[in-house]
């Protein structure tokens, strides 16, 4: 019965997402794409933060890797977005592999500082190698040419067309992350979060598993970056800045880092609130600071965790709840 309602719920959400693409105005479609792209970024990121228990300040670099990889291909080689995305995601993946190789030697604050250092190295390269990256101007003039698959060509030039492509990537990400969380690998990652020493004594290399989680999350960051560059028609150097890494963290925290849907819910809240607050005041950071304070001081399960807790409390009146996860 519970499973039935879950399917109904998923179907409703999907129908809603599709109808946004079909019927909504340009601005709503644009905002929805930003939500979806941020969700991809955060879903991947939370595999590292919520699952493995590692706080990275360097994932903006992988986002930028995706964006600049796509941008450079698009400007210098071919405008076919598919190749650009593949190169962008591949670049992010390789960067995550190399940077992760060094970073997973540490945990906690030292890991955070290492990722910060490597991320800022990437930022400084993007900032200073003007000939390649356009420096502070970024890469401009990325066009959304049709995706040509050889036998067919899918136009994404129009915002509403591109929306469906982004939606496809989002669904793909959700499905993959869902599978990973339920897999043996996902279980080992939560084991690392809980007690990394014990994982070693289960005969597993903590470093390798951490690295794998790092690379997976970095790769999704690259996908988000490539999609973001196509959306905005440019690659922005500040997308590599450490403060951009804070975005998936905030989003995961708002939604709830210990939940699967948290990063998605957080992205919706983040983008919408920011849009609404900016309508009324210049100071959305002030309000976000306050929201963040409230979450950290009192609502650490995030939105999803908080709602789940409400339900559980209701149910525990009926029967004593067992711990399941």
């Amino acid at each position: 019965m519970k499973r039935f309602w879950t399917y109904v719920f998923i179907a409703l959400i999907l129908a809603g997402l599709v109808s946004i693409g079909l019927f909504a105005g340009r601005f709503v479609v644009y905002l929805s794409m930003r939500v979806l792209i941020l969700s991809i970024f955060a879903l991947g990121y939370n595999l590292l933060l919520g699952r493995t228990g590692l706080l990275s300040f360097g994932h903006a670099a992988f986002y930028a890797g995706g964006a600049y990889g796509l941008g450079l291909i698009s400007i210098h080689v071919t405008t076919n977005p598919l190749l650009g995305i593949i190169v962008g995601v591949g670049l992010a993946c390789i960067m995550a592999l190399v940077i992760g190789f060094f970073c997973v030697r540490h945990t906690e604050i030292y890991f955070a500082m290492l990722t910060l250092a490597f991320g800022m190295m990437v930022f400084s390269l993007i900032w200073n190698l003007r000939e390649v990256t356009g420096g502070d101007d970024g890469l401009v003039g990325i066009v959304r040419a049709p995706i040509s698959l050889g036998f067919a060509s899918i136009p994404i030039t129009k915002t509403s067309h591109y929306y469906f492509f982004v939606l496809f990537c989002f669904i793909l990400t959700v499905a993959l992350i869902y599978l990973i969380r339920r897999s043996p690998f996902g279980l080992v990652l939560s084991g690392i979060r809980e007690n990394d020493r014990r994982i070693e004594f289960a005969g597993l290399s903590v470093r390798n598993y951490r690295l794998a989680a790092f690379v997976i999350s970095g790769t999704f960051a690259g996908l988000a970056g490539a999609l973001g560059a196509l959306l905005e028609s440019n690659a922005n150097p500040f997308s590599a800045h450490w403060s951009h890494s804070a975005e998936p963290i905030l989003v995961s925290l708002i939604g709830g880092i210990q939940t699967f849907t948290g990063p998605v819910v957080g992205s919706v809240v983040f983008i919408l609130l920011r849009e609404i607050i900016e309508r009324f005041t210049q100071n959305w950071m002030l309000w976000f600071g306050l929201i963040l304070l409230i979450i950290i001081m009192g609502l650490r399960g995030g939105v999803v965790g908080g709602v789940a807790q409400l339900f559980r409390r209701k149910r525990s009146h009926v029967a004593k709840s067992g711990g399941n996860r």
Binding site: L176, L179, I180, R182, S183, P184, F185, L187, V188, S190, G191, E194, N195, R198, I199, F201, A202, G203, L204, G323, N324, R325
Partner: peptide, 27 residues
């Protein structure tokens, strides 16, 4: 592993012994 169930606590080392711990997409 304090926040995992007793079953999962035992399951992690058993997965390792069976060389299944690396499986990414299979529940």
């Amino acid at each position: 592993f304090p926040d995992l169930t007793v079953f999962d606590n035992i399951q992690i080392p058993v997965l390792a012994v069976h060389k299944r711990a690396r499986r990414l997409f299979r529940p």
